[in-house]
Write a protein that binds this DNA or RNA. Structure first.
Length: 295
DNA sequence: ATCCAGGCTCCTG
DNA sequence: CAGGAGCATGGA
């Protein structure tokens, strides 16, 4: 059966920007972009379905194909898509701030309606961020593919088999040597295993950071060996959907700024903080729009 | 070949 | 405390 519903974004939204970001790699393991539609196998709490997402004015259409599905499950799927594409965030305040900023003004004009592509799964966010330290995006996609293929659980959807992102329980059960075999450095393998243990044991969770400001949350996360300022802020940005996460030193951020400002060298961290002085509270979206400028 | 990728730890002076 | 090597891998 196919169930259809719409999700309206909270404020400006242009689906084309979601497509551009989601379709940036042909190595993506968890979903597919094809002819303007996003196809994603979904398996959660015993509900298996294929999602087909397409754009509409200021929102998306979602088609859910599944053998059986409850209204409650459809609501969960709606919440999942909303979180993934960041459809519920009120971004008008960001636009108001950006309009007066010499770096951001042209970007919000050019990429009107672009929203951060978030990562709804808390553990997956960590894996992506940790794996992505100091290597090119291309290689992170390869690592993600290996993680999913080798350690992800299978889900049966409409007669076909798909693999989901590995659970923290599964990853925590692996020897670090095994984890290293998916092109992770030893430190990254140890760190991912540790985070897997912590998530599986409930020592860290999204809910735990409810009401905790971003700087304090970052301070907690960097206590974990292998997680530094960049990784913690990245998790805050894409996983916990904070407005004010700022992955300083991020190579994409640095390069985008260099290009936007026409510099013949990379801006220093001090200079970046200076540029960002007026972004107060919207560093996440500022960073994402700069990333968007590199696609 | 050499350098750099959406970094972090550890060691040195 | 700043500075630099080492880590894994693939692309330019």
């Amino acid at each position: 059966m196919v169930y259809k519903f719409e999700i309206n974004a909270n404020g400006p939204y242009n689906y084309e920007h979601s497509l551009a970001f989601l379709g940036r790699s042909d190595k993506e393991a968890l979903f597919q972009v094809n002819a303007g539609k996003i196809f994603r196998p979904y398996a959660c709490d015993g509900v298996n379905a294929m999602l087909a997402i397409s754009g509409m004015k200021n929102g998306v259409n979602v088609e859910v194909s599944s053998d059986i599905i409850s209204g409650e499950s459809l609501e969960k799927i709606s919440a999942f898509v909303t979180e993934w594409l960041d459809l519920d965030r009120d971004i008008l305040a960001f636009y108001n701030m950006a309009a007066g900023d010499k770096i951001l003004a042209p970007l919000v004009d050019k990429y009107q309606g672009a929203r951060i592509t978030c990562i709804p799964d808390f553990f997956e966010t960590f894996c992506w961020a940790i794996a992505g330290q100091s290597i090119s995006l291309h290689v992170v996609y390869i690592i993600k593919q290996l993680l999913v293929e080798r350690f992800g659980e299978e889900a049966q959807i409409l007669g076909k088999r798909y693999r989901m992102f590995p659970t923290p329980e599964k990853i925590s059960s692996l020897d670090t040597e095994v984890l290293q075999s998916v092109k992770l450095t030893r430190n990254k393998a140890v760190c991912i295993k540790r985070v897997a243990e912590m998530v599986a044991a409930g020592e860290i969770s999204k809910q735990m950071f409810d009401g905790v400001d971003t700087k304090a949350a970052v301070k907690e996360l960097v206590k974990i060996k292998g997680i530094g300022g960049w990784t913690a802020n990245y998790v805050m940005l894409r996983g916990l959907r904070r407005n004010d996460a700022f992955p300083l030193g991020d190579s994409g951020l640095v390069n985008a700024l260099r290009i936007q400002l026409g510099l013949d060298r990379k801006p220093t961290e001090k200079e970046i903080l200076d540029f960002a002085a007026g972004w107060n509270g919207w560093e996440s979206y500022a960073t994402f729009y700069l990333w968007r400028s590199l696609l």
